[in-house]
Design a protein around this nucleic acid. Sequence first.
DNA 1: CCAAAAGTGTTTCCGATACACCCATGA
DNA 2: TCATGGGTGTATCGGAAACACTTTTGG
Lengths: 230, 230
Amino acid sequence: MPYTYEYPRPAVTVDCILFGFDDGELKVLLIQRASDPFKGLWAFPGGFLDMEDPTIEFAAKRELEEETGLKEVFMEQLYTFGDVGRDPRGRTVSVAYYALVKLSDYLLQAGSDADQAHWFNISQVPALAFDHAKILQMALERLKGKVRYQPIGFELLPQKFTLSELQHLYETVLEKPLDKRNFRKKILKMNLLKPLEEMQAGVAHRAARLYQFDKQRYEELKSRGFNFEI
Amino acid sequence: MPYTYEYPRPAVTVDCILFGFDDGELKVLLIQRASDPFKGLWAFPGGFLDMEDPTIEFAAKRELEEETGLKEVFMEQLYTFGDVGRDPRGRTVSVAYYALVKLSDYLLQAGSDADQAHWFNISQVPALAFDHAKILQMALERLKGKVRYQPIGFELLPQKFTLSELQHLYETVLEKPLDKRNFRKKILKMNLLKPLEEMQAGVAHRAARLYQFDKQRYEELKSRGFNFEI
DNA sequence: CCAAAAGTGTTTCCGATACACCCATGA
DNA sequence: TCATGGGTGTATCGGAAACACTTTTGG
């Protein structure tokens, strides 16, 4: 069932740069390519935009779910790549999205068809297919820029987290150390974190208090002109 | 000469949101559609991505030149729009770019095939075709956000400009008044403006000093870790 | 001489930064 | 009892914001 057009058309694909955070490390999900081109190299989950996808973002989420089983992740459009030669099979325009997931959730997920999917520490990424190295670099820059002005860091942490975990996340993403007292002062003054009664468990030292990000309150404050900033 | 593919493909287009600044007003260039769909409504300059375009940005610049005669403008990718139904003729993915031009330069340009092109004050934009109203809104937000952290405002002014002109530009884009003394202090302390001997001419009051943006110096400072901020 | 915009400093305030010790817990 | 991270307050500094009058020029 071929499709015919008067003028040539590039293929349109989506790519998902999926970030996670665990063990004090920022991670990215990659899938090893089973076939040429770039067989054996690693690439982001992604695929073709289907005519049935109502939006491009829908396509990105669909692909992500197909390849990893993950649903309802934070996702934003990153950039669209379409240089000649980026795909040896033919002209391809790829709309890239980056997504943030709570790795704690992800570990509960199972049974996707992506047996070749692996999380890599951001500092230990293997050789990538296509122009994905460039895309990853751009995604990291975007994350670094965005995390300071929007409360998206919480998407990478479990529902309940300690202030130290939050601080380490910021230190990792921003690639610079932060002062503990100043960080706590600033983040708590925003009134966006609900302190819980519950304490951290299973650690060989004093247990830390757990907090929860209060999204509702954030929306409330934002509509009153509040600006998140770390 | 038809082109055939195994799976259906969306059309890929580019759109250019072209901003100018004159007479204390932010302006956008629109072209009146000569044919359906949306005949008579206004739209951004744009067109199809050609297989001969080495990059998508090249396509955007090519279209802009074809429709307005303008070359060598500041241009950045804005966002990619691809919702079903945004073009009644069929599934279309549009990569939108926004561009900034010195209107003083533009007035020197002539003889494009865009007799239907007009500059509209941003507060007096007519009904737009497709989803272009949404695109314009997004472009304005991006401009507003970007102008504070990157010295792109100068792209909208003539080579030589007064501090008042610069301030009015910022006030217009940011939609808020700025304090004259504080603004001058801040912008001059950056050492990015070369004061010229030349003074403003043809005004019925005290002539203001002209300045020039020192791009070379900006690159220099940026590489040393300097961050532009208004 | 008047209208219109150019040009110019100081004070106040608040948020950013720097900085070090005691506490609680499990091993 | 010790190793490990949790948790806390203050002083200083620098940039942001507020604020008004004199000067220059052409009409």
